[in-house]
Design a binder for these strands. Sequence first.
DNA 1: AATATTGTACTATTGTAGTATTACAATATA
DNA 2: TATATTGTAATACTACAATAGTACAATATT
Lengths: 127, 127
Amino acid sequence: MIDFKLDPKAGVPFYRQIIDQIKYGIASGKLQVGEQLPTVRGLAVELKVNLNTVSKAYKELEIQNILETHLGSGTFIGDSDFKITPKQKQEKLHSICREFLTIASSYGFTTTDLITELHEMQNSKNK
Amino acid sequence: MIDFKLDPKAGVPFYRQIIDQIKYGIASGKLQVGEQLPTVRGLAVELKVNLNTVSKAYKELEIQNILETHLGSGTFIGDSDFKITPKQKQEKLHSICREFLTIASSYGFTTTDLITELHEMQNSKNK
DNA sequence: AATATTGTACTATTGTAGTATTACAATATA
DNA sequence: TATATTGTAATACTACAATAGTACAATATT
């Protein structure tokens, strides 16, 4: 289970911080498929926010096929790899990159600039 | 001069659409250094928005050292290459890429995924 | 100097995001 | 079947972003 934490000074909405922490928890292996998350009320009390704030986070992750909610029993980590087809994943990657390119080009950067920079960031990370 | 167009359905604020079109105009060479932009009133009438909306766009671009405004005479494309140092440009590129990485990783994509995709997009563009 | 033209500043209005309050509906469990 | 536990829905409050209305200040032009 994750040790959830909210930072009111982060400038990021609470519900989005919750989303990010769950996503990161999955990516890092701290959260396993099938594992139950805290109940909306439980996490709301723990984080001292309203239960709707937690609910909003869970709901958005359910739309993204990352969580499964079962009324009466709770919310669980879904097996998103089974639900998101490789094609859907590829399309998501494509749309993210296209959006990125649009923003970058408005600053005058080329695709090559971006690739170069990403390479450098990758290298400096593994020092 | 650019043929400005606003899309109310874009989900992007008017002033930001104006900003993007000017930036893209510069990047694509349609706007030259020293060239005068429409007056805030002129463009406001043309786009059927309030003059403050145009003013806001110009002001933000002036902060970014992309435009120069001269009260009484108008707003002009500045020689941003002289004003933005290579170091600043590099930092901008870096911050854009880091932000991009954060978003992408929340979807489970790695830096390598992104680089690969960008390469493919670059290749398919030059067909 | 007078006037027109330019950008600026202040204020009000509208819409939306984020969060909370409260009541409800579905399911599990005793 | 009764009750507790779970997520859901409707509503409202607050803050802020976006835009507009209006008046102002600086500069150019005559």
